[in-house]
């Protein structure tokens, strides 16, 4: 039997295993809810950013109660407005609304696919049926990427239909003819897939389900902010060279942001492909090391 047939069989079985437990519903529900919430947030933001500056200020400063706005705050608002006052930018943001939580979910699903074998004590059955453990990992990798694709698809369908109607209604057209917008939607898929791969590697590396999911979530949510401060400190006190700031792209969360945003995420941010390469690199590294560890692990 060919390797491809074998892989397809394993992926099919993994999908079946997912569908026959609550993980499937939890994952779908989390995708739906997070996409909807982020879509609402992005549409509200777009609504005000796309207005002329004075109306934007009026909308955003609504809570300020008529008091005069401090000058530096006004300057900050202007730079925000200038960055966001573009139909293309807003279309990109809205059409990829599910991404912020979606890629984290894809990563967590990858982790759960591997660690649940130990957490749910099904590893004995799994490795009895497929004693070549690298094949088990490969099957789960295919499944995680497949699930990431489905999650991206679901999220994109919701975002694009709602967002297109919304933008059209505001009078900006759907922007779906714009190459930059379409590329952002496609790169978004890449982000889902790469984070799923990263999740598989991470799950194979860290045996505990709780440990792996919590550390991945923390790494993702505060990784970028923490990295920015750490690299800023290094730049200020140790090595005052600008490549130091660019180097924060080595942090997975930063790499992810760099990869998916068509505009610069910070002043020294390297091109998108650098972020993608770094994230894929981590995924492969974690996967290879994790698989090697898994191959020698005693299932007792």
């Amino acid at each position: 039997m060919s390797r491809t047939t074998l892989m397809l069989r394993l992926v099919r079985a993994e999908f079946y295993k997912l569908r026959t437990t609550s993980t499937w519903w939890i994952f779908t529900l989390a995708t739906l809810v997070s996409t909807t919430v982020m879509l609402i947030v992005d549409c509200v933001n777009a609504n005000s950013l796309l207005k002329p500056f004075d109306q934007y200020v009026a909308l955003e400063a609504h809570g300020h109660g008529g008091r005069p706005i401090p000058a530096e705050f006004l300057a900050h608002m202007r730079s925000e407005w200038e960055l966001g006052h573009s139909a293309v930018t807003q279309a990109t943001t809205i059409y990829t609304a599910g991404q912020l939580i979606g890629v984290l979910l894809a990563c967590l699903l990858g982790i759960v696919l591997i660690t649940s074998e130990f957490h749910q004590q099904t590893a004995t059955t799994t490795f009895l049926l497929t004693p070549h453990r690298d094949r088990v990992v490969a099957g789960k990798l295919g499944t995680a990427v497949g699930m990431a694709f489905l999650s991206w698809l679901l999220s994109t369908i919701i975002s694009v239909t709602t967002g297109a109607i919304f933008l059209h209604h505001l009078g900006y057209g759907t922007q779906l003819g714009n190459a930059g917008v379409l590329r952002a939607i496609a790169l978004n898929l890449a982000a889902y897939a790469i984070w799923a791969v990263f999740g598989i590697g991470f799950g194979a590396l860290i045996r505990s389900q709780l440990g792996a999911t919590v550390s991945a979530t923390v790494l993702y949510l505060i990784g970028a902010t923490a990295a920015a401060s750490v690299f800023e400190l290094i730049y200020t006190y140790l090595i005052p060279k600008s490549w130091i700031l660019a180097a924060q792209v080595v942090v997975p969360a930063v790499a992810s942001t760099v990869m998916i945003s068509p505009t610069k995420t910070f002043d020294q941010s390297p091109p998108q492909w650098v972020g993608a390469a770094i994230l894929i690199g981590y995924g492969i590294l974690a996967g290879v090391i994790g698989t090697q560890i898994l191959r020698r692990r005693d299932i007792a």
């Binding site: 079985a13 079946y16 295993k17 026959t20 437990t21 749910q120 099904t122 590893a123 004995t124 059955t125």
Partner: peptide
């Protein structure tokens, strides 16, 4: 291996949230 050796090591090693039939079907698919 499943056509040569069948093993019962711990009482079933099946996912607690899956039905018995679905557990066996997952094995068949694998």
């Amino acid at each position: 291996p499943d056509r040569v050796v069948g093993a019962v090591l711990e009482a079933s090693s099946a996912h607690k949230g899956r039905t018995g039939r679905n557990h066996l079907r997952a094995c068949c698919l694998t």
